[in-house]
Amino acid sequence: MTMAMTEAETHKGFIDVREMGVTFGANDNKVVAVDNVSLNVQPGEFVSLIGPSGCGKSTLLSIVAGFVKPTRGEALLDGKAITKPGSDRGVVFQQYSLFPWLSVRKNVEFGLKMAGVEQSKRNTTARALLDLAGLLSFENHYPDQLSGGMKQRIGIVRALATSPQVLLMDEPFGALDTQTRVVMQEILTNIWQQFRISVLFITHDIEESIFLSDRIYVMTARPGRIKAEIKVPLPRPRTAEMTDTPEFMNLVQELKGLIREESLAAMAPEIRDRGLSGFGMKVGPKGVGEIF
């Protein structure tokens, strides 16, 4: 293969969300989940979406994935409107979503099987991907025999098996402990650098979003809008040491400020007025961003 081919590949996977609005329910129990959001992910770019709980992040991702139809606006992939789920968009869910009745390898093979790829090729591809995730020795285990971190790594490579143009990730490391999370982030950057596909990554962890992303969208409290768009100028490949650099710290501070406002706005007015410390809660050195 040539570099030219690679470039052609990376020109695909352009996500364009235009003036999107989503309203759930009708009349009395109407909930405006997302309000007039426009965002994009350039081909090969890693973009994070960060915002307070309930601001419509998952809803937005479900629209790009094709599970939910927007009330207003549209979502496009490479210029074509997204109408239904498909294997051109890999999705990694917050909940563990491996099929418990399939072995680890069969899970990774699933997308290829659906695409009608023959057994021996599926096998080779799945084993290569499992090796990449560092889990080749677990290929014949069942998902229930694995730890949470392992399951999510398999979830990621399973989504990559069909060579999607974009990867959509909804707080994939949300259920993991801090140490595992840091390791997973490094693994994810590695994988992403090799595949160079567009990623839309949802998180509520500020450091995580900076460490991983080229660009970060900050959303407001519900109804979710885009509050800010922040470029992350840190060089690649990113390393764990970078998190101690002043550039990184500054970005953390900037994002914390933005998010603090929003998470306060998301809370009930009486708490907001009294302030969190007046409510008996400590605002730790890491700020309120740590607790939502």
Binding site: M1, T6, E9, T125, A161, T162, S163, Q193, Q194, R196
Partner: peptide, 17 residues
């Protein structure tokens, strides 16, 4: 021979050459 898994290889190895 096969476009689907081939893309995996293309991307994966091209990035590493």
């Amino acid at each position: 021979a096969d476009p689907v898994p081939a893309a995996v290889e293309t991307k994966a190895s091209a990035a590493q050459v």
